[in-house]
Design a protein around this nucleic acid. Structure first.
Lengths: 129, 129
DNA sequence: CTGTATCCTTTCGGATACTG
DNA sequence: CAGTATCCGAAAGGATACAG
C-alpha cells in the first residue's frame, strides 16, 4: 500500500483534497446548534423526539431546530424515523458517523465550559484599554 | 470557595452558569476562521506574522484575517506584538489559553478530514431522493 | 507589510402564523 | 406533536480602494 494511515496533517484541511468541501463541513460541525443537538441527543441516550430536543436545547427556536435537524439528516449524521400515529411522533437518532463525532464536539464544549470565565476576563481587560 | 472543580457536565453549557456567554464563545471557537487561524499558528510553531498566516490559510480574505485576529486577541487567545520597523512587522503568538484549545480544535478538524467523503456521499444519496 | 474603510450581496435566524 | 411558510432585521463576509 505504500501509504499508511493518514498522519492527520491539518494541511489536509488547510489546503489539500477539497478545501471548499472541508471548510463547509467544518462550519457545519462547528455550528453551535449542530453541536448542542448532537451532544443533547447523545446525552439522551442517542435517540429522542422533537419535543425532547426542543426542551433539551435552551434558546433554540423551532425554526433552527428543524433546520439543523434537516441539515444533519442530509449529512448522514442523524437518522429520522416517523411513526404513523396520532398525535404524530418522530424520533431522531445518532448514526454511526455522528457517534464518532461526539467526542470531538465534547472536547470543544468542555474547553468552553472550563475556560469561558478566563475569556470573559480577557475581554474585560481588553475593553478597559 | 467551597466548590471543587467542575465536573465538566455538558449541562453546564446547555443550560446553566451563563448559557448566553457560553453559547457565544462556542460560536467563536467553533468558527472555521478561528480554527484555521489557531491551528495554522500552532503548525507554524506558535508564532507567526500576518503575511505568513495569510498564506497559510487558503481562502481567507484580508478582512476576515484581520477581524479574526482582533477577536482572538480580545479573547486572550492570541498575543500581538508590533515591531517598530520599516516595513512594519507584526507577530502573533498563541497564548497559554489557546494552547490548551489546540487539541480540541484539532480533534474536530481531524474528524472532518477523516469523514468528509462519507458526508459527501450521504448528501448525494439524500439529494437523489 | 499590515492594516482600515466602505460598499454591497448573501446568509442567519428570530417572530409569528398556519397545518396535518 | 411536529412541523411549514413568510417576513424582516441583523450579521457575515467578499471585493475593492486607500493609508501609515
Amino acid at each position: 500500500m505504500g501509504k499508511a494511515k493518514q498522519p492527520l496533517d491539518s494541511a489536509l484541511v488547510c489546503g489539500h483534497e477539497d478545501p471548499i468541501a472541508v471548510r463547509e463541513l467544518l462550519t457545519r460541525v462547528g455550528d453551535k446548534w449542530s453541536i448542542f443537538l448532537i451532544l443533547s441527543l447523545a446525552k439522551l441516550g442517542g435517540r429522542a423526539r422533537f419535543s425532547q430536543l426542543d426542551r433539551a436545547i435552551p434558546g433554540i427556536s423551532q425554526r433552527m431546530l428543524t433546520l439543523t435537524l434537516t441539515h444533519l439528516e442530509r449529512d448522514g449524521l442523524i437518522a429520522r424515523e416517523v411513526f404513523a400515529e396520532i398525535p404524530p411522533r418522530v424520533e431522531y437518532e445518532l448514526t454511526a458517523l455522528s457517534r464518532s463525532l461526539v467526542e470531538a464536539m465534547q472536547g470543544l464544549v468542555d474547553w468552553v465550559a472550563q475556560n469561558w470565565k478566563q475569556v470573559s476576563a480577557a475581554r474585560a481587560e481588553y475593553d478597559a484599554r
